[in-house]
Design a protein around this nucleic acid. Structure first.
Length: 541
RNA sequence: UGACCAAUGGUGUAAUGGUAGCACUACAGUUUUUGGUACUGUCUGUCUAGGUUCGAAUCCUGGUUGGUCAACCA
């Protein structure tokens, strides 16, 4: 049981909130969701599910200059894809009028004032964490003057940045957020939902807790950096005498060999270090989706990393483990040769083709079988043959035997080479008595290799991905460096492969395992005559 | 020279005063028509110094280390 569950169970025992649980996931629509958000989503929705409650989706759209509907749509899609359904969809901007009324109420009670100081002056008066701040000369304006000014702010009488509304709290507080925090700023900006109705916009601290309160949220779960905001969250709820949700903070997810900051991910996209937000190398949810991760694997990952308050860097190998674990159960097996070399069965009848049975998924009997065309000339992996083999290599070498999966046991006799010494063909003989299913096929051989028929395979593009960064913590930089300097210049390899001809856009599985190689999925760049596969993750070697 | 938060194997995370466990990683072995899967095993841990207690990873005090906070961002 994690510490959030402990808090919730304690609250239920004490019949707090009538023993109900209601959470929310509150993204700002200013970027795409990433694996860190996936963790938060799994916690927000997971806690409510576990305790019989519901979860709202609320867009924290209080800053019109950064936000856009493009992001709203992608966020909705990503949450659904992950497998969660929100009870209600809300927008902080839906509460602007209520928030405004509450602001007037605080002014009436002498708890808020309009400040004409410049940004620089306010910053200077706020002081530093180790030294108290000083009072603004506007701090003791009358209620009437404050009210008049605030109403004229709303009416649009003042230019951007000329005035702000501040809460009157404590300029001596060791917590910077309590030093008369700004509640409203003037922004003559077009909002993606409210249009030009408003020219003053509430700050996060003035909007978030009250939005939670309006929705009747019981447990407002967020990341650690908001811990210092909690006294302010509490202050507004108390000052307004409204329902007071409990803010609970947990440590955000960090993943080795990647970055998680929205700003930096945006930079990767804008500077074209990647193909887009959904580039399979990106830690975004849409990137992982395109990479071939299953929603289940991401949910398992979020469950496995746990929830605590200590800073962490999760090893990407755990994410990869979760991918393999789920993909092993659901991926359709197929034969694909990524680095082909021709194999010729010299004693196999010229022009003959026979069908062999192949299992679609050994982990799932219901997945059935399919027929594969076997013949005299096959493609096999170049790496499955070695001219000089050491003891640990037990695949094909001159004089040795291996099994061609679902077909025959073969023995290598000799090889052809070109002028440069590259192997152009591998000659073998087969034993007709060893066809899979026949009694003699049970003979022990050291290895089984995969193949595709030269005359039946189709060519496909395969995109292989390496880590986007070549250091575990790309944010750790030497003087004068940035995370950009840690980008792995070799993170994308595009190659041609031969795959079974049965796969096409009308007849494709969601997830494939290329036997003995790894997990792959069909990329959206595919067209009818040209399949593109993305490698999700290798099989464990 | 501030306040707040946190410290358990290489990485995460449990143990809520009573046998330090689990997962990943790494390495061995068994099974296998995928060098996959499954199964078994091995290695490695309570930041530090005191205190309370029959007994401390757990409670207390000091220290050390890491993180957060000084946007009209969220």
């Amino acid at each position: 049981m994690n510490f959030i569950e402990e808090i919730i169970e304690e609250d239920i025992r004490n019949n707090k909130n009538d023993a109900k649980v209601k959470t929310r996931f509150p993204p700002e629509p200013n970027g795409y969701l990433h694996i860190g958000h996936a963790k938060a989503i799994c916690i927000d929705f997971g806690m409510a599910q576990k305790y019989g409650g519901t979860t709202n989706l609320r867009f924290d759209d209080t800053n019109p200059v950064k936000e856009d509907v493009e992001y709203v749509d992608s966020i909705r899609e990503d949450i659904h894809w992950l497998g969660f359904q929100w009870a209600e969809e809300h927008y902080a901007s839906d509460y602007f009028e209520q928030l405004y009324q509450w602001a007037e109420q605080l002014i009436q009670e002498g708890l808020a004032y309009v400040d004409d100081s410049t940004q620089e002056e306010i910053s200077a008066m706020r002081g530093v964490p180790t030294k108290p701040g000083t009072h603004s000369p506007y701090r003791n304006r009358s209620v009437e003057e404050n009210l008049d000014l605030f109403r004229r702010m709303r009416a649009g009488e003042f230019p951007d940045g000329s005035k702000v509304l501040r809460a009157k709290i404590d300029m001596d507080s060791p917590n910077m957020h309590m030093r008369d925090p700004i509640m409203y700023r003037i922004l003559h900006a077009h909002h993606h939902r409210t249009g030009d109705k408003w020219c003053i916009y509430p700050m996060y601290d003035y909007a978030h807790g009250q939005s939670d309160s309006i929705e009747g949220i019981t447990h407002s779960i967020c990341t650690l950096e908001f811990e210092v905001h909690r006294p302010l969250y509490d202050w507004f709820c108390e000052a307004l005498k409204i329902h007071h949700p409990q803010q609970i903070e947990f440590a955000r997810l960090n993943l080795s060999y990647t970055i998680m900051s929205k700003r930096k991910l945006m930079q990767l996209v804008q500077e074209k270090h990647v193909m887009g937000w959904d580039d399979p190398r990106m830690p975004t949810i849409c990137g992982l989706r395109r990479r071939g991760y299953t929603p289940q694997s991401i949910r398992n990952f979020a469950e496995t990393v746990g929830v605590a308050k200590r800073d962490n860097i999760i090893d990407v190998s755990l994410l990869e483990f979760c991918a393999r674990e789920d993909l092993n159960k659901v991926a359709t097996r197929t034969m694909a040769v990524l680095d082909p070399v021709k194999l010729i069965i010299d004693n196999y009848p010229e022009g003959q083709t026979e069908e062999v049975d192949a299992v679609n998924n050994p982990e799932d009997p219901n997945a059935g079988t399919r027929k594969l065309p076997f013949g005299k000339e096959l493609w096999i992996e170049r790496a499955d043959f070695r001219e000089v083999a050491d003891k640990k290599f037990y695949r094909l070498t001159i004089g040795s035997e291996v099994r061609l999966k679902y077909a025959y046991i073969i023995k290598c006799t000799h090889i052809d080479k070109d002028a440069e010494g590259n192997i152009t063909a591998i000659h073998v003989t087969y034993d007709p008595e060893t066809k899979s299913g026949l009694p003699l096929s049970n003979r022990k051989v050291k290895a089984t290799i995969h193949w595709v028929n030269v005359n039946h395979a189709q060519e496909a593009e395969v995109r292989l991905f390496e880590r986007l960064f070549n250091v575990p913590d790309p944010d750790e930089c030497e003087e004068g460096q940035t995370f950009i300097d840690h980008i792995n210049p070799d993170s994308l390899h595009v190659t041609k492969a031969f795959v079974e001809e049965t796969i096409n856009l009308n007849n494709k599985a969601d997830y494939y395992q290329f036997e003995r190689t790894g997990y792959f999925c069909v990329d959206k760049d595919s067209t009818d005559g040209h399949l593109v596969f993305n490698k999700t993750v290798s099989l464990k070697q």
